[in-house]
Amino acid sequence: MERDKNFVLGVFDDEDVLLDAITKVRGNGVKIHEVYSPFPVHGIDDVLGYKRSKLPIAAFLFGLLGTTLALTMQFYMMKFDWPMIIGGKDHAAFPDFIPVTFELTVLLAAFGMCGVFFVSSNLKPWAQPRIFDLRITDDKHVVAIDLATNAGLGEEKIGDILKSSGASEVNKKSFE
């Protein structure tokens, strides 16, 4: 069977039932493709075994880039390219450079991190998402299980496991 085409979907109404169900389903040796929710469910990355996001590291590195660029720019312009005496102070008036440095650090950290977020999550205006169930953005949580990666279990067995762990519905969904 081809991967990423045929799915069994467990539909859940309640986030706490969902969290227990994910643990049970995974305990039964079923590999979960992904879980879709209308709102962020706390603790879901732990039960799904997802690693912590590396986005904070991206933000830090972009922030560092912002600091470096801002300081380089200001020292170059004010000290080397066109030195001017302002208020009888040193050309390289370091304390005066702090506000702009801070702002550019924040700007690059925020934009860099959001850029990485959009790219890594494939978020873009022309993206065509695969929608497993229209109620995902309304009030239902959906556990999607790829039949191909769980070939040993079979559709019916997976359905039973989902039902017994609290799914309110079990559906099938195929994509071309």
Partner: peptide
């Protein structure tokens, strides 16, 4: 932006 509500995306 093609949001699908995946747990991974919510976590990010």
């Amino acid at each position: 932006f093609g949001w699908d509500g995946a747990a991974k995306t919510w976590s990010r």
